[in-house]
Write a protein that binds this DNA or RNA. Sequence first.
DNA 1: ACATCGATCTACT
DNA 2: GTAGATCGATGTA
Length: 201
Amino acid sequence: MTGPADLPVLPQSFYLPDSRIVARRLLGRLLVRESPQGVMAGRIVETEAYRADDPACHAHGGRTERNSVMFGPPGHAYVYFSYGMHHLLNFVTEPEGTPGAVLIRALEPVFGLEFMRGNRPGVPERQLTNGPGKLTQAMSIDISENGATLYEGALTVRDPGAGKREAVVSSARIGISKGCELEWRYCLSGNPWLSRSCGRP
DNA sequence: ACATCGATCTACT
DNA sequence: GTAGATCGATGTA
């Protein structure tokens, strides 16, 4: 039997366009984690776009040590530590020198659920990966993945092929105090694994 | 050096 | 619905 690690990987050029385009196109794709524990995979169901001209973007105030990966080439992981306890996973987008990223906010677990449960003991199935901090814990992704490529290596994004078509809805991003008027959060409408329900279609 | 602030989650009311 | 946990990065002194 073949697993998610045999599916075709999205090329680096996938991440070159505008963050908002990439955020939308990522929905329905597979995040595949090949950890020492085993292979895990989840379908991306919720994303948020961040851009240089956007006050909520970490890179808005210029380059720092933390956000430097965002200024690099597209198709790399930008991982940072937040609230003293959560790791958040982003994908770097747009050409080198232009900072941009897509925050991965929720996954629908599809493979290696036993490892995810082991990483989040006692957590109900529905809450395994329905939030940005939860999915990194479930897939044991932390700061050591910062800067890693997404088109080769232990963390990849793959194309599962034609699947069910689901409507995409956009809404305001979550947990930010600036740029709230920008509706750059994208969800697969009504998906049960969203971190929160979303706005209008 | 020190104070502030998070792209959050959980547990509890 | 909301309080509290918890710590690295950043900005100011």
